[in-house]
């Protein structure tokens, strides 16, 4: 076999935007697994929480995060688990090992999604051009995550901090579309001469 040197690509790896009040770019690749099962089952939630290092029985539209992982609510029987330290196959295998076979599922979606960070004082205005969801702090405080629409793409919006900074999790194939959309509306907002 020929000499091999695998190279990793992400959909927006070269994309960055710096404008007055808006900074945007793609976050680093990380492992992501969707787990589904009966989250009323205390045994499942305790074993999964232990494995993830974070509580998985989070409230609707919220997430929890520490330096090495994050858990997002996706639905009553569904969570997304990020690991910032582990390889996707490792995370998947570990989570699967504590879940009841045949009555749950764990699926590697590390490549399925990428996330775009949108930060700066004008970030909310940029997001509001594409989403009907109200991203004002009173409706979308820190620790919130919602699945909604941006343009015509399905996305998950994550309120990272109130500086403000948001993450947009989007499917790989839609990433370029969402990025161009963000860039176009960011240009309207951030470069407008203040009058």
């Amino acid at each position: 076999m020929a000499e091999l040197n695998p190279v990793l690509h992400t959909p927006l790896q070269h994309a960055t935007f710096h404008g007055a009040g808006v900074v945007m770019g793609e976050n680093l690749f990380c492992a992501k697994v969707i787990v589904r099962g009966n989250f009323d089952d205390a045994q499942l939630t305790s074993r999964l929480s232990e494995q993830a290092g974070l509580p998985v029985n989070v409230a609707a539209n919220t997430f929890v995060e520490n330096d090495s992982a994050a858990v997002f609510w996706l639905g009553p029987d569904e969570r997304m688990i990020y690991s910032y330290a582990k390889e996707p196959q490792v995370l998947l295998a570990e989570l699967r090992s504590v879940m009841p076979a045949g009555r749950s599922s764990a699926v590697d979606v590390s490549d399925y999604y990428t996330t775009i960070r949108v930060g700066g004082v004008n970030a909310r205005k940029v997001l509001s051009a594409g989403t009907p969801f109200d991203v004002h702090g009173s409706n979308f405080p820190e620790g919130s995550c919602v699945q909604t629409r941006f343009g015509t793409a399905s996305v998950m919006l994550v309120m990272q901090d109130s500086s403000p900074a948001f993450d947009i999790q989007v499917r790989w194939s839609f990433a370029e579309y969402v990025w161009r959309y963000l860039r176009r509306v960011a240009e309207f907002r951030t470069l407008t001469p203040q009058s």
Partner: peptide
Amino acid sequence: YCTSVTEQW
């Protein structure tokens, strides 16, 4: 449980 993985691969 069904999960879309179209873009994963």
